[in-house]
């Protein structure tokens, strides 16, 4: 029953991704790539890339993308519903307590423990994606002695520009796409 699986998987992603945006990455990777094998690591990286270039939260984008691939339009709607239901419900619950007690110290305590853990999760997902981009092949069959030189240059220059001038990340991603598109098409692999 793919609809139930989609709903439940994205329900977990919505329920456990604290800290927004990139914090959802490792959870999506867990559910979609590792546990359910709905996408390969390469396809997952494509979804992340597409999400960065389109508006909207990455979890919703991933839910729609995976939902359509696995269960058509209905799948996309169900996966998205699964993703937003827990977070909307918890937000409303917290809002209710906020208007009633105007005190969120319990929540703040939990959050102060979650924040460093989420940084750890994001670091892990970031390194996975970087390894995928810079070396040929994902996870177990990564060939560390054979880096993809074009990607290494794009990555290094991109990171340097970001750190040095703090320009809009969209420009870095679009620029890497255009330059990479030309180089990969011209240079024989």
């Amino acid at each position: 029953m793919i609809y139930l699986q989609l709903f439940f998987s994205f329900f977990q992603i919505g329920l456990f991704s604290f800290g927004g945006g990139y914090a959802a990455l490792p959870l999506i990777q867990d559910q979609v790539v590792t546990i359910n094998h709905w996408l390969s690591m390469q396809e997952f990286a494509d979804v992340v890339t597409i999400s960065q270039m389109t508006p909207g939260p990455i979890a919703i984008n991933a839910a729609t993308f995976v939902g359509i691939q696995m269960g058509g339009t209905m799948g996309a709607v169900i996966a998205t519903a699964g993703c937003v239901t827990p977070s909307a419900a918890i937000s409303l619950l917290l809002a209710f307590f906020y208007y009633k007690y105007k005190n969120l110290s319990l929540v703040k305590g939990i959050m102060s423990g979650l924040r460093p853990a989420v940084v750890g999760l994001i670091t892990s997902a970031g390194i996975s994606l970087t390894i995928l981009a810079l070396f040929n092949g994902a996870d177990k069959n990564t060939d560390y002695y054979n880096p993809d030189l074009i990607s290494v240059v794009l990555f290094t220059v991109g990171l340097f520009i970001l750190r040095k001038w703090k320009i809009n990340p969209i420009i870095i991603m679009a620029g890497a796409g255009i330059i990479g598109g030309i180089l990969y098409s011209v240079v024989p692999q």
Binding site: A133, R163, A176
Partner: peptide, 29 residues
């Protein structure tokens, strides 16, 4: 092939953006 090449390049850019975020997060922590 062209789409693949562009996605490939963009992936390196996205990796740079995410590692930049990671750097700032760890530094602040």
């Amino acid at each position: 092939h062209v789409v693949q090449a562009v996605l490939r390049g963009m992936q390196a850019g996205v990796a740079a953006v995410i590692m930049d975020v990671v750097y700032v997060l760890i530094r602040d922590l």
